[in-house]
Design a protein around this nucleic acid. Structure first.
Length: 742
DNA sequence: CCATAAGCAACTAGG
DNA sequence: TTGCTTATGG
């Protein structure tokens, strides 16, 4: 099972690798742990190894399994392997844990108590299932918080344990087990898996059916795992099972970048890798190719404050670079304002917007930053927050698709039964749901039964009949239609767009646009995967993430949470909200686990290539009230000689920001904020176009009222102008419909 | 049954 | 602050 000697690396690969990377790529046989520091060429090492195996070691692409955490990482890996190997590379299995498990489960669905076209449920669907369970058990959210029940179920599965067989010591434990039992039963009836089920059921499948496990063990002779520090226990067990007969297992990770403890990731997996896999070899990649020496040393000093880590020190041949700037602003608005101004300044000194990023700890922080960017006309994208596939209108359309595919999906059916409103109200639905419970049938069957037995009042009954008829009609056709065609048909037949258009609000308009996007996504999917089936598309939708969706191709500043930033890099990085209680988060301080927060901060810092700004506010609005905040402890843990502290203490001055209050800036403040040329207010932002259209200009639109110009694309009467309307927010308008003044 | 108003809770983080 | 659930009147 061990390969004694390995053939030499081809020159074209070898010349792009340092000695440690080479060692990792050429590793022969047995388990290998690559401790890959931030920016040390981890992806290159993995992809080159795959190329090496195929090109030099007579390994077939299909004998390779590479597991990642995000679709994005999987996509990048596929791309890079393809550029190294060309045509045959598609036969290598490169995917996320979840997608890989979903694929396996589709093949053996019946053994997991599902059909091949099972549905994947997200957090909201899970909540809906739990709601039904609560109703059946006569429970309410007060006697058992739903969040707790979900956590119980999920954490058991993450640990590879059966939530149905939990401890029953205390009354609450008994209750949790009971809820879990009903939940799992419901999920089976619904023909659905939740995210953690995908991993858990695959693990169970392998444990109960050794012959199936063997199929995959034989197939995958070489296994690679990316971001190993983020694996949880089930993932560990899956890897162990799959790799027990493989020729090589290579895991890559960095214990200092383990930031998913809250979703079950166990840092011990990487810290104790060699205990789980005897005979492990370890290669450490310590040379950083990304950041300036100052940034690297700063991050390195911070992380040494952690106890639970493998000691290591990164180094770089990169120049020292400029000092790290630490800015302390008076409040959160000032902070956002500062960032937007500094961004403008960076653009002037040659940084391009897409090479700049702003990281924050919590999503709630994004709003002010977004506003500040809009007001200054800074092109920006917010990654995360409410994801595309979780927007109500998208979920509605997908719910229709799910019901068409699987009539037993009562969760989806409940969602759409009266959306758009068709006269089937709460009382009617309750009647039918009760019938369903009594007869132990799904909602769809209950609807039919209720009609048959004539137990509903006339109005609702005819509505239901009509609804079922349309559903029937589309379902019959669906088999012959593509996803795109099915979707357009249902949007039309059920009047989804019509219903939104009637509302005639800007929000509804943007929803209509989103439905259009969904149709695009469907046809893209067909083109990309050559697959016209609903199953495949729905699976893609369920597993899609916002980072996948984010359009990084535009030249825009990226605003995102630190968690989403892992694996990315930017010339200039702002870390905002560096305050105790926010970053590190209050929760982690209470729980006495600041180490993960520190790793998170480390991840954020090491994304920066050239410039790093550490920003905090002295006062911050949370909910309704403003609170005074203390500097983040992390700011005290970094070497001061690497930092230029530019703190502006304004707590005693009642200063109002010009940007947000519509006033001019305080010139004194401006100077203290920055010695150099910061544009004092939006009225000073340079005019883009001699037609009299300039950024920041006040304009009037017959429908949308008054607003200010944020961005102009093109010129002449047909130019596209982005305007921030007081009443209607940001919209794109053709220039000829805009009039001067308010 | 439905639309709107009012009242109230929620904000770590994500596949 | 937003976004949900509940109350109210049509």
């Amino acid at each position: 099972m061990h390969m004694p000697t390995m053939p030499p690396l081809p020159d074209d690969l070898a010349e792009k690798l340092n000695p440690a990377q080479k060692k990792a790529v050429e590793h022969a046989g047995g388990p290998l742990l690559i401790l890959a520091g931030a920016g040390s060429g981890k992806t290159r090492t993995i992809t080159f190894r795959i190329a090496y195996l195929v090109r030099s070691c007579n390994v077939m692409p299909e004998e390779i399994l590479a597991l990642t955490f995000t679709n994005k990482a999987a996509g990048e890996m596929k791309e890079r392997v393809e550029s190294l190997l060309g045509g045959s590379s598609y036969r290598a299995w490169i995917g996320t844990f979840h997608a890989t498990c979903a694929k396996i489960l589709r093949r053996h669905a019946e053994l997991a108590g599902r059909t091949t076209s099972f549905t994947i449920y997200d957090r909201n669907d899970q909540r809906a299932v739990l709601k039904r369970v609560y109703k059946d058990l006569n429970l309410d959210d007060k006697s058992l918080a739903m969040g707790l029940a979900l956590y119980y179920i999920e954490s058991h599965k993450n640990k590879g344990l059966d939530p149905v067989k939990g401890s029953k010591k205390r009354a609450i434990d008994k209750l949790l087990v009971k809820v879990a039992q009903h939940y799992q039963k419901k999920m089976k009836e619904l023909d659905a898996f939740d995210f953690s089920d995908l991993l858990w059921f695959t693990h169970r499948l392998f444990r109960k059916n050794r012959e199936i496990l063997e199929i995959y063990q034989k197939r995958w002779k070489h296994i690679l795992v990316d971001e190993y520090q983020d694996t949880n226990t089930v993932q560990y067990l899956l890897i162990k099972e799959l790799a027990s007969k493989s020729e090589s297992l290579v895991v890559v990770g960095d214990d200092d970048q383990s930031i998913y403890g809250w979703r079950g990731a166990d840092i011990e997996n990487i810290l104790r890798f060699e205990h789980g896999f005897p005979g492990t070899k370890i290669v450490t990649l310590q040379e950083n190719y990304r950041s300036t020496a100052n940034i690297l040393n700063l991050a390195g000093s911070l992380i040494t404050h952690n106890k639970r880590r493998k000691p290591k020190e990164l180094f770089t041949a990169n120049p020292e670079g400029s000092l790290i700037e630490s800015w302390s602003l008076s409040d959160d608005r000032e902070e956002a304002d500062f960032v937007s101004r500094k961004l403008k300044e960076l653009f002037e000194t040659g940084f391009s917007p897409s090479e700049c990023a702003v990281f924050f700890r919590t999503n709630a922080q994004s709003r002010l930053l977004e506003q500040a960017c809009s007001l200054r006309g800074i092109p920006h994208v917010v990654v995360g927050g409410h994801r595309f596939f979780e927007r109500a209108e998208i979920k509605d359309a997908l719910a229709y698709l799910r019901v068409i595919k699987n009539h037993a999906d009562s969760i989806a059916l409940t969602r759409i039964i009266n959306y758009p409103p068709r006269g089937i109200g709460k009382t009617t639905l309750d009647k039918v749901l009760n019938l369903a419970t009594r007869k132990d049938i799904c909602l769809f069957d209950a609807l039919n039964l209720a009609i048959e037995r004539n137990i509903l009042s006339k109005g609702p009954a005819s509505s239901i009949r009509n609804f079922l008829d349309i559903l029937q009609k589309i379902s019959e056709k669906a088999g012959r239609l593509s996803v795109y065609e099915t979707m357009s048909l249902l949007i039309d037949e059920f009047g989804l767009v019509r219903h939104l258009q009637q509302q005639d609000t800007p929000e509804a308009d943007s929803r209509v646009e989103n439905l259009g996007e969904l149709l695009n996504a469907a046809s893209d999917y067909e083109e990309m995967y050559g697959d016209r089936s609903l199953d495949g598309f729905l699976e893609k939708a369920a597993l899609a993430t916002d980072v996948d969706q984010a359009d990084m191709t535009k030249d825009s500043v990226v605003l995102m949470t630190v968690h989403l930033a892992k694996g990315l890099e930017f010339d200039a990085v702002f870390i905002v909200g560096l305050e105790d209680g926010l970053f590190p988060h209050a929760r982690s301080i209470e729980d006495n686990d600041v180490e993960e927060e520190r790793r998170l901060c480390y991840v954020a810092m090491t994304r920066a290539k050239k410039k790093l700004f550490l920003v905090n506010a002295q006062r911050r609005a949370t909910f309704g009230t403003t609170r005074v905040s203390k500097d983040s402890r992390f700011l005290n843990e970094i070497p001061p000689d690497l930092v230029e502290f530019k703190n502006v203490h304004l707590a005693d001055r009642s200063y109002k920001s010009g940007l947000f209050q519509g006033q001019r800036f305080d010139p004194e403040f401006d100077q203290s904020l920055d010695r150099a040329r910061v544009p004092p207010g939006i009225e000073h932002i340079e005019p883009v176009w001699e037609h009299g259209i300039s950024l920041g200009m006040e304009v009037h639109h017959p429908t949308f009222g008054t607003g200010r110009i944020l961005e102009v694309r093109g010129n002449g009467p047909d130019a596209r102008v982005d305007v921030n309307f007081i009443q209607h927010g940001r919209r794109t308008i053709i220039a000829r419909f805009l009039f001067p003044g308010g």
